[in-house]
Amino acid sequence: MSSKTKIVVFKAKELIYTGIFIILGILLIMLLIFMFAPSKESSKTKKTSSYTEGVYSSPLKLGENELELEVTVKNGKAQSAALKHLNKTVKTMYPLIEPSLTEINRQLPKIKNIEDLKFSNQNQYTNTILKQAIKNALKKAQE
């Protein structure tokens, strides 16, 4: 067995250029990580958004009927929602309004954010209208 010794020669310029490119690559990767990683401060501010206690209302127009949705806030969270000026005509024209409101009231104390409300596909439109009215009332609670 004969072993041939190989001698590798590096030029100083090549080593310096390679080191610079490696450092720049590492800096670029770190920059991308810091830019696109979620910040801890933004997640804390989302969790701590609380509302002032009280009862807040928002107008709700269904067809030609003007209703008022009242949201009760306790302990910084929306606890319940109720419709005022709801008569038999509105109940007949919009039969899903009461079951939708009941479902929303069942979920309100359990969720942290209004966006977390889950709806069935049967009354998606009605729930969306009620959800928007609740958001409008809660905007008043933040001010």
Rank of each mutant, 00 (worst) to 15 (best):
L138K: 01
E98F: 03
M1A: 08
L96Q: 07
H85I: 10
Q124E: 04
T45P: 07
P99I: 03
T52C: 06
A133K: 06
E41Q: 09
K88F: 10
K44C: 05
L27I: 06
T102G: 02
K40I: 05
S3Y: 08
K135G: 02
K118Q: 13
D116H: 05
T128P: 05
K140D: 11
K84H: 12
K11M: 04
A82K: 10
K84R: 12
G76C: 09
G54M: 06
K13Y: 11
L31W: 15
T5N: 09
N75H: 15
I16K: 15
F34C: 13
K47P: 01
E14N: 14
I97P: 00
I20T: 10
F21V: 05
T5H: 12
T89Y: 01
K91M: 11
S58L: 08
A12F: 14
K11G: 12
L28D: 13
V90N: 03
V8T: 15
K74G: 01
L96P: 02
L96F: 08
M30G: 13
E115R: 10
E14I: 08
V8S: 09
K11C: 09
Q142T: 13
E41W: 02
T5G: 01
N123Q: 10
K140E: 13
L67D: 04
N123K: 02
Q132P: 05
L24V: 09
V73F: 02
A78H: 07
T48I: 10
E64F: 13
K4D: 02
L60S: 06
E14C: 04
V55R: 10
M35K: 15
N105L: 02
E103P: 07
A137K: 05
L130E: 03
T48G: 07
K47M: 12
E103C: 02
Q132R: 09
M1C: 01
K11A: 13
E98K: 00
T45N: 13
Q107W: 00
S100G: 08
G54R: 00
L69G: 06
Y94N: 11
E14K: 13
Y94G: 04
P109H: 04
L101C: 03
L86K: 04
E66F: 09
H85K: 14
Y51Q: 05
A12L: 15
P59L: 01
T102Q: 09
L96M: 05
K47Y: 08
I7R: 08
A141C: 00
T48Y: 06
I97E: 00
K118F: 06
S58M: 09
K11I: 07
I7K: 10
N65M: 10
E115S: 12
E66P: 00
K61A: 09
K61V: 14
M30R: 15
T92Y: 12
K13F: 14
L15R: 10
E70Y: 07
S39P: 07
L117C: 02
S80E: 15
S43D: 11
A12D: 15
I97V: 11
T5S: 08
N75R: 12
S100V: 04
L60V: 01
N75L: 07
N105K: 00
N75M: 10
P59S: 02
K112Y: 03
S3P: 09
K11F: 10
A81I: 08
A12V: 14
Q132W: 12
K112T: 12
E64N: 13
G76H: 06
T18K: 11
Q107Y: 00
Q107I: 03
